[in-house]
Structures are given as structure tokens and as C-alpha cells.
Design a protein around this nucleic acid. Structure first.
Length: 423
DNA sequence: TCTGGGGTCCTAGGACCC
DNA sequence: TCTGGGGTCCTAGGACCC
């Protein structure tokens, strides 16, 4: 059996741990750039604030209900996530960290699963102050179904165990097909046209149809719902195949010069990620996009992937390729809203095949990267940067309602008895 | 005025190879 | 007249996840 442990409204719950005044009131956390709502407390849901809603469209509800609004504080959430995973590790020898707020646990051979689920909830609650729900099933996909039910039905008190054929059938019956892990908006629409509404109906579809219209991925989902485990726990995080840095700009950017400054900044953040993976990139992709929500200007979304002659993890070298790619795809007079770089084809640094005619002095580049990473690590990101980044941050994004890094910075700790905790 | 960011996998089609 | 078959690699696009 598998358990899926998932934190409730994770980002909101993290904020609440350090500011009890947020309990019982509507709270939302915004995406990067303070754009959309990515986490909502139950109270905020009740105020009609939708998942993914642009916050500027929610102004009225925010004002009327006194919704507390926060920027994403990834330093805080990342640290709290690590603590949760640490606790979960005590409950099973097999834990797959699936996302920042979810983990699958291997509970095979165990008895008393419901009580165990309650125990997990209790311990995470006591030690970290975070509410979680636990779903248990024969496969990962069924555990997901169970978790969804645990979240929605208060009388279950956060734990749902699907351990008989009858319970499986009932669970699938009460789960809409778009609530199934692996079936998103497009596929559920397609299924809807076939008259399929629930997970149960999906599980009863002819597998030939599923294979043809939903590929092997859909077929796997169907089998998982039937109790056939097709997905196993991934106990070690697989090496990343690509890393990406992309941002929307505070305001549109026109002109190659400014665009290059932004891309230089992105490429050096991306290079840092590549080095963190202990890898080198074999390809570099640059993407440029206009605002897809505007109807008054023509949309464009261009990207170019350039293969590197020798895989590299040097900001300097990657930036060179990014600049040339940008020159090739940039269109004069277009106002860009978003840009990004992707370092692809990552290979471990010690497996890189060199080039006999390589002109790059890789030792010097490596020394430079090491020095800049150390300086930026010690004195803060951006202390040392590429000249091509320019002086400004014209691409800079909004982050106006950021809470403190309560759990990772001495100078930002909560003070008890002081008056300094609330901004 | 203001609409996120970072990943994965699969498929189809083209280029190329022997 | 008759013009193969089997494979790899790459990329773009589409779907999904959180």
C-alpha cells in the first residue's frame, strides 16, 4: 500500500505557523511577480477566490473580506518542506518526495493503516504546526484519489484509507475524472465528449480507446485506478534533464539591449542551477514572449535552441550563446512581456566529452564560476554579476508582501514579547 | 495598470545513417 | 517497369504535474 501525505494549503499554512493572527481569517499567497493566487486558506476559498485567479481581479473580495495577501516566500516554504519530509522519513523506510508539499510513503505489509495515518497527522501537527491529509491506496494513483477525498470530507478528519474493492469502487464513483492524477483539463474535456464523467467510468473505458487517445500515459493511469501498480516509488531524486529560469517583466521590454540585460541575468541564475546539479548543459534555449493576455497587439512566442560544441556550466560561455540566440530571434519593435533561458541536455560534469579543438579555457571558467558562486553565496545573489547584465533590473518583478525568513535567518526570527513580529 | 515559474513525458515528423 | 527496411537523433508541440 502507498500513502500520499499532502500539506493543506501549504504556503498559507507556513505563513500561519509564524503568525497565529492569520488563523481563522482568509489568507492567500501569490505566485512570483505577485500575479496569481497559488494558495488559499479555506476561508479565502469561501470568499470566492479561485485557484490561479489574478489578484488584481480579486481586489473587491480582498477588501470586503479583509483577505490577507502574501508574496511567495520560497525560502520559508522550502525550509518547512524539508522539515516535513524529515518527519515523514520516520514513518516509512521508503519516502518519495513528490513535490514541495507532498510525499508518497511505502506502507506495504503494514496493519492498522488508518490509525497510522492519524498518527502521521498528529506528529506533523505537533512538531511543525502544519495540517496534512493522508490518503492510502493500493497504487500511487489510488492514494492520490484517497487523499483528495480526505481533503474534501471533514468527517474523515484528514485520513482516507481505500483498502477493499468496494471502497475502491465507491471512491472512483465519487471522483470526477478531472480529479484523477494525470488527467487534466484537455483530456477530461475529451473524455466528457465520450460521456465519461467519473473516475469509475474512465476505469471502465475500452483500453484500446485510452491507448489511442491518451497514449501510454493514459493507459497507465487507467491500470493504476484498477489497482495495478505501474508507478513505483522513486526513492532517489532522478537527475534533472534541464533547468530553466524565466520571468515576466514588471513592464514590457522593447529593444535588444534591455532584453540582453535581462537574459544575461537569467542565464547566470540558470548557470548557477546547472552547477548546483553538478552538471554541464549541452543545449541552451532562449525564449521571448509577448503578453498572451493582450488582444490589442499581435502575439509572438519565439524560441531558439542552440547546441553547445562542448557541454558547459560557465555563465560566461552560456551567456555568449544566449546573446547570439537572442539576436537571431529578437524582432524589432516588438514589446516583450516575458523571457527565459533553458539549459538542456544536462550531463554530469565528470562525464563530459571534450573537444580536441576546444578554444575555451575551461579551467579558468571553472575558477571564475567557483569564485562568483562563493561570493554570491556569502554576500547575497548579484554581488558579482556579468557585465552584460547592465546596472539596472529593468526586468525586475514585484514582491511587495513578503513575510520574513523566519526559519532560516537569525536576524529574521520571531521575537517573543517584542513588538516587532508584524510588519 | 496589474494574469507565475519550473519541471516531466510522449508523439510525430524530418534528417540522416547503413 | 521495378525505387527497402530499420534504426537513431533531434525538435516542436501538446499534454500533464505542483
Amino acid at each position: 500500500m502507498y500513502a500520499l501525505v499532502d500539506c493543506n494549503s501549504f504556503y498559507v499554512s507556513c505563513e500561519r505557523v509564524f503568525d497565529p493572527g492569520l488563523r481563522g481569517v482568509p489568507v492567500v499567497v501569490l505566485s512570483n511577480n505577485d500575479g496569481c493566487v497559488v494558495a488559499r486558506s479555506a476561508e479565502a476559498k469561501a470568499c470566492g477566490i479561485g485557484m490561479g485567479a489574478p489578484i488584481f481581479k480579486m481586489k473587491e473580495a480582498v477588501k470586503r473580506y479583509g483577505v490577507r495577501v502574501f508574496s511567495s516566500n520560497y525560502t520559508l516554504y522550502g525550509d518547512m518542506s524539508a522539515r516535513v519530509m524529515n518527519v515523514l522519513g520516520r514513518f516509512s523506510p521508503g519516502v518519495e518526495v513528490y513535490s514541495i508539499d507532498e510525499a508518497f510513503l511505502d506502507l506495504s505489509g503494514m496493519e492498522g493503516l488508518k490509525e497510522y495515518g492519524y498518527r502521521i497527522r498528529e506528529v506533523v501537527g505537533l512538531e511543525l504546526g502544519l495540517p496534512v491529509c493522508v490518503g492510502v491506496g493500493r497504487t500511487k494513483t489510488l492514494a492520490k484519489v484517497a487523499n483528495r477525498i480526505a481533503k474534501r470530507h471533514g468527517r474523515l478528519r484528514g485520513v482516507c484509507v481505500i483498502d477493499t474493492a468496494e471502497k475502491e469502487r465507491r471512491a472512483l464513483e465519487m471522483t470526477p475524472v478531472d480529479g484523477v492524477w494525470g488527467i487534466g483539463g484537455r483530456l477530461s474535456k475529451k473524455l466528457g465528449r465520450q460521456g465519461v464523467r467519473t473516475a469509475l467510468e474512465f476505469s471502465e473505458m475500452p483500453s484500446a480507446w485510452v491507448r489511442k487517445h491518451m497514449s501510454v500515459v493514459g493507459l497507465r493511469t487507467q491500470r493504476e485506478l484498477a489497482g495495478e501498480a505501474c508507478l513505483s516509488l522513486e526513492l532517489v531524486r532522478p537527475r534533472k534533464k534541464s533547468v530553466c529560469v524565466s520571468r515576466s517583466f514588471g513592464s514590457d521590454i522593447e529593444g535588444l539591449g534591455k532584453l540582453k540585460e535581462a537574459l544575461s541575468a537569467f542565464v547566470s541564475m540558470c548557470g548557477a542551477k546547472v552547477r548546483e546539479e553538478g552538471c554541464c548543459a549541452s543545449t541552451l534555449t532562449v525564449l521571448l514572449m509577448t503578453n498572451r493576455f493582450r488582444t490589442d497587439i499581435p502575439h509572438c512566442s519565439d524560441q531558439l535552441t542552440v547546441p553547445l560544441p562542448v557541454p558547459s556550466d560557465s555563465d560566461l560561455e552560456l551567456a555568449g550563446y544566449a546573446m547570439r540566440a537572442a539576436e537571431r530571434i529578437h524582432r524589432e519593435g516588438v514589446r516583450y512581456k516575458k523571457a527565459g533561458v533553458i539549459a538542456g541536455g544536462l550531463v554530469p560534469k565528470n562525464e563530459v566529452t571534450g573537444d580536441l579543438f576546444d578554444k575555451v579555457d575551461r579551467e579558468r571558467h571553472a575558477a571564475l564560476s567557483l569564485a562568483t558562486d562563493r561570493l554570491n553565496g556569502k554576500f547575497g545573489a548579484g554581488t558579482v554579476k556579468l557585465g552584460s547584465q547592465g546596472p539596472g533590473r529593468g526586468w525586475s518583478h514585484r514582491q511587495e508582501r513578503l513575510s520574513r525568513r523566519f526559519s532560516t535567518r537569525w536576524e529574521e526570527l520571531v521575537e517573543v514579547g517584542g513588538g516587532r513580529n508584524l510588519p
